[in-house]
Design a binder for these strands. Structure first.
Length: 215
DNA sequence: CTTTGGATCGTCT
DNA sequence: GACGATCCAAAGG
């Protein structure tokens, strides 16, 4: 074996990690580390909340009505970042999954700050508590410095601006599953996944009740 | 703690 | 012309 490759050394995820269905990739993205390096400054955070969007077959997906200039990145190869603008003022980021052309994606909805706390606080002056720095898809992008500039960024490139790292922290054996937040179409599909009990998970208490729990 | 209304503009109908 | 894969401050329990 190559002694320079130690099995427990943190390493960026390879392309193959993203090649599966979004509903399979989403839960195993939990507890991975996302890091951005912008202007020579690196911040990192542990992913604690995601949602799967299953491409053309998913009425809630931006890809449901076919390719457009906005969603072009989703229709490209897996392992890239799909960044979109919404509500006239917010950016949100997805990881493209599946095979080229399937337009599957996982929305990054919440993360626990790890490194670069001072930078995160500076980028998120309205966050009163550190648990609000990256809690929610638009806040996450604001804290990590993600905007339109990084739509299409390749996550595989170790020297890229955005990487997702496996630091050997396993995903939860049983993530909490709920309906996706803010979507009206296909509300019956429980494709939101989060780390139970983590304070950096978005949503209200009623939105965070797992599917199938007794009334 | 929860609920409510306003902000704000790119995108597609 | 209508609508968001949202956030925030304010107000009420």
């Amino acid at each position: 074996v190559n002694p320079s490759v130690r099995s427990h050394e943190p390493r960026p995820l390879g392309r193959e990690f993203f090649a599966g269905d979004a509903t399979d990739v989403a839960p195993v993205l939990l507890n991975k580390v996302v890091a951005t390096t912008i202007g020579g400054v690196t911040v990192s955070a542990r992913i604690v909340e995601v949602e799967a969007y299953a491409g053309a077959a998913d009425p809630a997906s931006h890809a449901f009505r076919g390719p457009t200039p906005r969603n072009a990145t989703m229709f490209g190869p897996p392992g890239r970042l799909y960044v979109y603008f919404t509500y006239g003022m917010h950016w949100c980021a997805n990881v493209v999954c599946g095979t080229h052309g399937e337009a599957q994606a996982v929305l990054l909805r919440g993360a626990a700050p790890l490194g670069g706390l001072e930078v995160l606080r500076a980028r998120r002056p309205k966050a009163r508590r550190d648990r609000d720095l990256l809690r929610g898809p638009a806040r996450l992008c604001q804290g990590l410095g993600i905007d339109r500039t990084y739509d299409g960024a390749d996550l595989i490139d170790r020297r890229g601006v955005v990487v997702i790292i496996d630091d050997a922290t396993p995903p939860p054996a049983a993530p909490v599953r709920t309906a996706r937040i803010g979507v009206t179409a296909a509300a019956d599909r429980p494709w939101r996944y989060f780390v139970e009990g983590d304070p950096n998970v978005s949503g209200t208490s009623s939105q965070n009740v797992p599917v199938g729990s007794p009334p």
